Simulated assay, not measured.
Amino acid sequence: MTSLYEHAGGEEVLHRVEEAFYDKVLADPVLKTQFAERLPDHVDHLTWFTAESFGGPDRFTKQLGFDHIIAVHRNLAITDEQRRRFVELYVEAFEEAGLMDNDAFRAAVRSHAEFGSEVAQQNSHAKTDEELHPIREVPRWTWDGDD
């Protein structure tokens, strides 16, 4: 069975999806406090994370490491509304790229975004390391969800 990464079309396609997603969150009234300005490497980092999570190259782990994603979300105090909107826009970017014709892929993308946003939200409120979500590596997502 092909990986989610292969099904999506690889890194180039995922980069285009993440670019479209990033444009959405930068313009979104609910998320603009979390995404106040365009960061030069953010789309690349999002792409690396998604690619690795979907079964592609482990560039995110090798070049940034999971501690990076924990540090980025610390003290953001992500609200439930922001978490839900993030997932909505993420799925929308995949839909607009024409990648959601397969129901299993659609479900995997949504569950990936839901899980990731829950981890980010928990970490955004953590005052101590003990309050952080226990995951410490990029999750490997499969057609059935978290591997």
Rank of each mutant, 00 (worst) to 15 (best):
A104Q: 15
T79V: 04
D28V: 05
L99H: 13
V109R: 06
R38H: 13
K32W: 04
E37I: 10
M100C: 15
Q63G: 01
E88N: 02
G9Q: 09
V13P: 06
L4T: 14
D67G: 15
D58R: 15
I135Q: 08
G9P: 08
E96S: 12
T79L: 05
L99V: 14
E18L: 08
A120E: 07
L132A: 06
K32R: 14
P139S: 06
L4K: 07
E18P: 00
R38S: 09
A93H: 10
D23C: 11
L26N: 00
G98A: 11
S117D: 00
A20Q: 11
L64R: 15
I78C: 00
D103L: 14
A126H: 11
Q34A: 14
E12W: 05
D144Q: 15
F66L: 10
E37G: 05
H125T: 00
T2F: 06
T47R: 11
R106C: 09
D144T: 12
H42F: 14
E88D: 14
L26K: 00
R106V: 08
E96N: 15
G65H: 09
G98Y: 13
V87G: 06
V17D: 04
V91Q: 09
E81A: 15
E19C: 00
I135L: 04
G98R: 13
V138Q: 03
G145K: 08
Q121N: 05
Y22V: 04
F66M: 10
V17M: 11
W48Q: 13
L31E: 03
W141H: 04
E18Y: 00
E96Q: 14
D58F: 04
G10K: 07
R85K: 09
E19Y: 01
G9F: 06
N75C: 03
A36C: 01
G55N: 13
E95I: 01
I70G: 07
E81S: 09
T142A: 06
E11V: 12
W48T: 01
F105D: 12
R84D: 15
E96G: 11
